[in-house]
Amino acid sequence: MDDNYPSPELLEKYLSGRCSPDEARLVERWYDSFENRPDLAQEHPQTQDSAYSRKILQQIRQRIEDAESRPVRPLGLGRNWFWALGGVAAALLLLTLGIWQFQRVETAGKPALGNPKITERTLENTTKTILRRELTDGSVVWLSPATKLRFPERFAPAQRIVQLEGEAFFEVRRDTSRPFVIQAGKLKTEVLGTTFNVRAYRNSVRFEVSVVTGKVAVSVANRQPVLLTARQQAVFNPKAESLAKMKLPRFTKPKPWEPATIAFEWASLRQVADALEETFGVRIQFRNPALQNCKLRADFTNMRLPVILNLLCKTTDSSYTLDGQEIELDGLGCP
């Protein structure tokens, strides 16, 4: 068995909160391998262009025709056969490298963030679930539905700039030499390393930046930035270009991106859903009523709602969709 694949016993320990930090990291790396595996269209978007495919095919055909037009000498059975085959192998290698080089030049694509030497990448969540993605600097972003994030293939030495449209929760890897900057329209959020949520959908009358841990600087244009700490929020009105700072009420239900602790001992999925509704203020429905009968034992200590939902779905072989505060679970269910 693959050493990186956690055993059923280790998964059971993880869900019950009994594993060591090293074991927990093993499980989380395995989980990340599913969430961060890019498909061909995401890794090489040019392959979706029919003109690009025709160009590659034409290049290959031309090289084949050039090779076929050359005279072929019979190979003797002496010592020269080794060098002749070596020449054929070298030609094939050059052909492969030529195609790779052509593809690499095509992949350079359009310039990112004003720098013509940097390739830009785009993450877009067109699903109805919250997607977890890891950026090239090790930071983690949770993309809500209908959210788009643009960032360079390689961050600049002085700062890490991304552009956001929609809502996302960020877990920024600390780097004091390179601030992390989120540009959402006219709203700019700058951090060194912290966890926070940014809500900035296009045409929205209210943008929000909410801090869970650490410190965040929020600003508009060249105005004095607003400094936020844990459980503080900045609200921006795009039309009036006004920016206000407020403190989140102390005794309110945690937001989906805030951590909470819930434990279950062979509880039905209906009981789990009730507890999540009470904790996070959401509403959970079951598309297949039989799914409510599934039982599980788990310890969700200091976890956010998206993490809990993903673990629940993997444990019960189900899926979920999100629409605002409405969550719908679907799966085969249990008798």
Score class of each variant (00 low, 15 high):
109 G>E: 07
274 D>L: 12
88 V>A: 14
135 L>F: 04
170 F>I: 00
205 V>Y: 05
239 K>N: 13
29 R>V: 07
195 T>P: 14
136 T>P: 08
137 D>E: 07
303 M>P: 09
151 F>Y: 14
203 N>R: 15
43 E>V: 11
283 R>Y: 04
116 P>A: 00
111 P>H: 03
180 F>S: 02
216 V>Q: 08
82 F>E: 15
135 L>H: 00
1 M>W: 12
162 V>W: 00
34 F>L: 10
50 S>I: 14
239 K>G: 09
153 E>Q: 14
39 D>Y: 01
254 P>I: 01
329 L>W: 00
87 G>N: 11
314 K>F: 04
16 S>H: 08
242 S>L: 06
173 R>P: 03
63 R>H: 02
333 G>A: 01
150 R>F: 05
68 E>I: 12
210 S>M: 02
282 V>G: 02
118 I>G: 02
165 E>N: 08
287 R>V: 00
189 T>W: 03
189 T>A: 06
204 S>H: 08
135 L>I: 04
157 P>A: 06
120 E>T: 14
53 S>K: 11
19 C>L: 09
274 D>K: 12
279 T>E: 08
274 D>R: 06
218 V>K: 00
151 F>I: 05
243 L>N: 00
204 S>P: 11
169 F>V: 06
3 D>C: 07
108 A>P: 10
127 T>S: 06
50 S>P: 13
161 I>F: 02
49 D>K: 09
317 D>R: 14
119 T>N: 08
77 L>D: 08
124 E>V: 15
317 D>E: 15
255 K>F: 11
110 K>N: 09
17 G>C: 12
171 E>K: 06
99 I>Q: 04
327 I>H: 00
2 D>M: 11
332 L>E: 05
100 W>K: 11
70 R>L: 07
323 D>T: 09
272 V>F: 00
120 E>D: 07
17 G>Q: 10
265 E>P: 11
289 P>S: 07
56 I>T: 11
10 L>N: 07
159 Q>K: 15
37 R>V: 02
324 G>Q: 00
53 S>V: 12
74 P>T: 10
259 P>Y: 04
108 A>K: 15
247 K>A: 14
292 Q>A: 15
50 S>C: 12
5 Y>C: 15
100 W>Q: 13
327 I>P: 01
36 N>T: 04
191 V>R: 01
